[in-house]
């Protein structure tokens, strides 16, 4: 049973504890509480009616499904990036390592413009898939910018550093003897990777996934340029909130905000519970 307070030679608990409550209240708890409060004043019927409107529902579905997909893709490829950056040494490694942070550091609008320019049908990469390209003659034209695919590209872009930076310290600490032990027991490399290495990395991978997902759901700046924002097709939920606010539909905006809050909270809770469970199994929480 944790005690609320035990006498200590290091003073300052009362002051800092009070500060934590004040700070978190002003910054996080009161604003979020207000959203929930306003939404609840709408009443369940209106809330339901707003959220099931076809454009609202499509926007929420688009935001969450693409964010989950982007986080999943980042989990896989971020693992490979982190693996290469920690396990091997090669010329240009530090440069490559630093470039992982760029999506963090760039203003999202800059990222949005850059991605749009590159992936637009006349951009460097976009033109490779545009009508008339080799790709188009074989598989048919593929439009990236101004479609959900473009949103996905932007979400992958901004999520990558979260996975890589979460995994790197864990990979550095990963005991090489585990892999050697597995090899002496006769396990081939793929078996060692899938049975020994990846399970050990799983909690950190989940954390990275959760962070990338959370960032993707809330992402606005880099997405709106590349999305095209076609209602019901490539319009993300955060943009819909802005649209509602511009139409002075505060109730609608609040309802969408509450739905996002609830969904994000549920997903992050699920991820955290899974992570805590796997960490405990690994013996971290001793």
């Amino acid at each position: 049973m944790p005690q609320f307070r035990t006498p200590s030679a290091i003073p300052g608990f009362g002051l800092t504890y009070g500060f934590v409550w004040l700070y978190l209240s002003i910054i996080i708890l009161i604003p979020l509480g207000a959203v929930v409060l306003w939404a609840s004043s709408l009443g369940p019927e209106r809330l339901y009616a707003i959220l099931t409107r076809s454009d609202t529902f499509a926007a929420l579905r688009l935001s969450f499904s693409l964010s989950l997909l982007a986080a999943a893709v980042n989990a896989v490829f971020g693992l490979i990036v982190a693996w290469v950056l920690t396990r091997y040494s090669f010329p240009g490694k530090r440069l490559l390592d630093a470039s992982v942070d760029l999506p963090f550091a760039l203003p999202t609008a800059v990222a949005g413009i850059a991605l749009t320019a590159i992936y637009a049908p006349n951009g460097w990469i976009g033109s490779l898939f545009a009508p008339g390209s080799l790709w188009a003659s074989v598989f048919g034209p593929l439009k990236i910018a101004y479609t959900p695919l473009g949103i996905f590209v932007a979400l992958v872009f901004i999520g990558l550093p979260f996975v890589v930076r979460t995994l790197q310290p864990v990979l550095i600490d990963l005991d090489k003897e585990l892999e050697e032990a597995s090899a002496t027991l006769g396990a081939r490399r793929p078996t060692t990777l899938f049975r020994v290495v990846f399970p050990t990395l799983f909690p950190a991978l989940l954390t990275g996934f959760a962070l990338a997902f959370a960032r993707a759901v809330g992402e606005y700046g880099s997405v709106i340029f590349i999305a095209g924002n076609i209602p019901g097709v490539s319009e993300i939920a955060p943009l819909l909130i802005i649209t509602r606010l511009e139409q002075f539909d505060y109730a609608g905006a609040t309802a969408i905000a509450t739905a996002m809050l609830a969904l994000s909270f549920a997903i992050l809770l699920l991820v955290n519970v899974t992570e805590a469970w796997s960490r405990k199994r690994l013996g971290h929480a001793r």
Binding site: D175, E177, L178, E180, A181, S182, R195, V196, P199, T200, F202, S278, R281, L282, G283
Partner: peptide, 8 residues
């Protein structure tokens, strides 16, 4: 020396 047991 440090056992190298599979913790999971």
């Amino acid at each position: 020396q440090h056992y190298a047991l599979f913790r999971h």
